[in-house]
Simulated assay, not measured.
Amino acid sequence: MTTGAIRLGTRRSALAMAQSGQFAAALERVAGRPVELVQIVSEGDTSRASLSQLGGTGVFATRLREALLAGECDLLVHSLKDLPTADAPGLLLAATPVRADARDVVLTRDGIPLAALAAGSRIGTGSPRRIAQVNRANADVSVHDLRGNVDSRMQRVRDGELDAIVLAAAGLSRLGADIDLRLEPQDLAAWPTAAGQGSLAVETRDDVDDELLAAIRSLDDPATRFAVTVERTILSGVEAGCHAPVGVHADVVDGRLSVRAAVYGARPGDEIVVDHDEAVGEEYIRPQGSGDGADSARRVVPERASAIGTVVAGRLLDRGASDLVSPSTTS
Rank of each mutant, 00 (worst) to 15 (best):
R7L: 06
R11H: 15
M17S: 08
E28Q: 01
E28W: 00
E36I: 11
I40W: 01
G58Q: 06
V59W: 01
V59K: 00
R63D: 13
L64T: 03
L69G: 12
D74A: 09
K81N: 15
L83F: 06
A86F: 12
G90N: 06
T96Y: 03
D104T: 12
L107R: 14
R109K: 07
R109A: 10
I112E: 13
I123T: 05
V134W: 09
R136G: 02
N138G: 02
S142H: 15
H144R: 13
L146E: 04
L146T: 02
N149I: 11
R153P: 06
G160W: 03
L162D: 05
D163T: 02
A164E: 04
G171F: 07
S173E: 15
L175N: 01
L175M: 01
I179H: 09
L181Y: 02
E184Q: 09
Q186H: 10
A189K: 11
P192V: 07
Q197M: 09
S199I: 07
A201P: 04
A214Y: 03
A215F: 00
D221H: 07
G237V: 03
A240P: 01
C242Y: 12
H243I: 12
A250S: 03
A261W: 10
V263C: 05
A266H: 08
A266W: 05
V274R: 00
H276G: 05
E278Y: 02
G281W: 06
Q288M: 15
D292M: 10
S296T: 14
V300H: 10
E303R: 13
S306T: 14
I308M: 03
L316T: 10
S322R: 11
L324E: 13
T329I: 11
